[in-house]
Amino acid sequence: MNIFRLVGDMSHLLAIIILLMKMWKSRSVAGISGKSQILFAIVFTTRYLDLFTSFVSIYNTSMKVFFIGTSYVTVYFIYQHFKPTYDSNHDTFRVEFLIVPVGGLAFLVNHEFSLLEILWTFSIYLESVAILPQLFMVSKTGEAESITSHYLFALGSYRALYLLNWIYRYYFEGFFDLIAVVAGCVQTILYCDFFYLYITKVLKGKKISLPA
């Protein structure tokens, strides 16, 4: 494992912990898109089915279990435990517009036409766009709490770091996965506008608020 991959994973872990801490400490899920979190739960569930078929390492298994577990805890917090604080009026992105095309694409463009492989491909494609309901919510309400911004920054950085990891692996290991790389690029590009706002506003102590 190279440094980019490790820091990327840690960034992903940090994002999830920030989100859980925000919800738990403030007893609120305000500003968080339940739809994006459902998509992430689907992403982890469909990607890590290989937990049942192959063992890579303790690190690999524990991270996978952590990601799946916390994604369900997050969805539970939003739709059950802290439901009264969930801002469903602003969480109106139509997820079927993501799931249906992504499902079709995974069916058509994959490495191997087998169930696990198609589900893996589906999860890679879906992850690349899963943040859209959350970004849509931020643009609709025109603001994001600082803690939500930190969460989004850590989550966005993770895939950007994976891009560096793939460049490294291409040069030093001859490893190249076109599906993951293209989806990773799409995913990172979707965050660019947010990254800009984060650097120009949040890091200077202001919260993100967009003109109405």
């Binding site: 991959r5 994973d9 992903h12 290989d50 192959s54 890579v56 390492s57 690999n60 991270m63 996978k64 990601f67 893996w120 994976y162 990891n165 290991e173 490893f175 996965d177 993951a180």
Partner: peptide, 10 residues
């Protein structure tokens, strides 16, 4: 092998 290396990532 290719398969294994891919699944090594998260």
């Amino acid at each position: 092998l290719e398969e294994q290396r891919k699944k090594d990532e998260l």
